[in-house]
Amino acid sequence: MKKKSLPKTGKSDKIRREKDPIPWRYCILTLVCGVFLVGGFFLAARAHFSSIDFGIKNSGLKKQIDDLESEKRRLLLLKEIALSPAELKKAAKKLGLTEITASSFETVRSDDAKPDASPNAKNADDKPKPAVAEKNANDRPAEKNGKDGSSKDKPRAAQKDDRTAPPVKIAKK
């Protein structure tokens, strides 16, 4: 049996192995990639959290808008309530004002201004007249007068009124 000799494993001076240099380029590349990766994660996380933060703020603002709209509507309602005739009446009473109805006015009426279908007009002067009445009483004769509106038929009381211009309506106390 032929003995097979194995090659020597000892170091040979003739064979020089090249020592691998440190792969700086790869390390730097890896590092840069790592930094990019981590930076990306970091930015993503920051964007995520700031988006949540903005979302929270946005919701808060939306709620604020809703609240302000509600408040505006509530104030509109209060305004309507305050402007309602019944409330105005109450407020006026608080201020000491008294309610004036048509019958609360006395009218200075001329003798000539008689109602067209009023046989009882003479007695009518004793009664208080609505505000509209005196306007008509004085206006009508003027309308029927001459073109210039200054007829001699103008009621005496009205003529007097023109000069002295006293208040035609007298509030009944």
């Binding site: 009426r109 201004a113 008689k114 109602p115 067209d116 279908a117 009023s118 046989p119 009882n120 007009a121 007695n123 009518a124 009664k127 007249k129 509209v132 009445a133 306007k135 008509n136 009483a137 206006d139 009508r140």
Partner: peptide, 17 residues
Amino acid sequence: LPELNVAPDGSLRQENL
């Protein structure tokens, strides 16, 4: 009627009815 800006076209009404 005054509130609706209707111009008066009549006269005094009868009182003491």
